[in-house]
């Protein structure tokens, strides 16, 4: 969980950086250039296969862990401590992860899949900038994106710290740094992602 999670966190940074190019407000010129590089570079495309593999592994490991851990307490408590002993998001990683997965299925079928399909069938890359512009005119799509990114944020608040703790780095010296960085990351990255559909919806971008 930890290693695949850290890989996916690294991916988020790259994805966020590339897509934030739209905020140059240059009609998508810089974004299209970056997307073209990411979509055609041999090395990136190879890592993409690894990314899909790690994503799948993360989902399978997570669900297996969730179901195994659930089975360790057949007779459950009548009264639960709830938030008195632990934050809700740390206990809801499987739920948050499932929400993110459902969001990802929608997200990938909107942009990634049609673009790759077009490339494979020899029709070249799609104009992702204008696809975004068009998709994010619909209010419910923007709503689902905001919800998906909020789920991602809560998932990261626990996931970021937890990944380092599993690797044995949650010592008194690093714990504060890891937690603070994790919380900052979990707020900033999803917020930048949320800003994208919102910016298109509000017609802030040309």
């Amino acid at each position: 969980m930890s290693l695949t999670g850290l890989f996916l966190i690294t991916f988020l940074i790259v994805h966020c950086y590339i897509n934030a190019q739209i905020f140059y407000n240059d009609g998508g010129a810089r974004f299209t250039e970056a997307a073209h590089f990411m979509g055609t570079n041999f090395l990136i495309r190879t890592v993409e296969i690894g990314l899909m593999g790690f994503l799948l592994l993360h989902v399978i490991q997570g669900l297996a862990l969730w179901s195994k851990n659930r089975s360790r307490r057949t007779n459950r408590y009548a009264v639960n401590a709830g938030s008195a002993t632990s934050p809700w998001y740390s206990r809801s990683m499987a739920l948050l992860g499932t929400l993110i997965l459902l969001f990802l299925i929608m997200h990938l079928s909107k942009f990634w899949a049609p673009n790759r399909f077009s490339q494979i069938t020899g029709n070249g890359e799609k104009d992702l900038y204008h696809m975004m512009k068009e998709e994010f005119q619909t209010a419910w799509v923007v709503g689902v994106y905001i919800f998906g990114c909020i789920s991602l944020g809560w998932h990261l608040v626990h996931g970021f710290y937890s990944a380092f703790q599993t690797l044995g780095l949650g010592t008194s010296r690093y714990k504060g740094l890891i937690k603070t960085t994790g919380i900052a990351f979990s707020i900033i990255v999803p917020l930048i992602f949320i800003a994208m559909p919102v910016a298109f919806f509000m017609n802030w971008l040309a």
Partner: peptide, 11 residues
């Protein structure tokens, strides 16, 4: 079970 770093034990 397996540890998922929830922290209820410490509490």
């Amino acid at each position: 079970g397996s540890c998922t770093n929830i922290g209820a034990c410490e509490a």
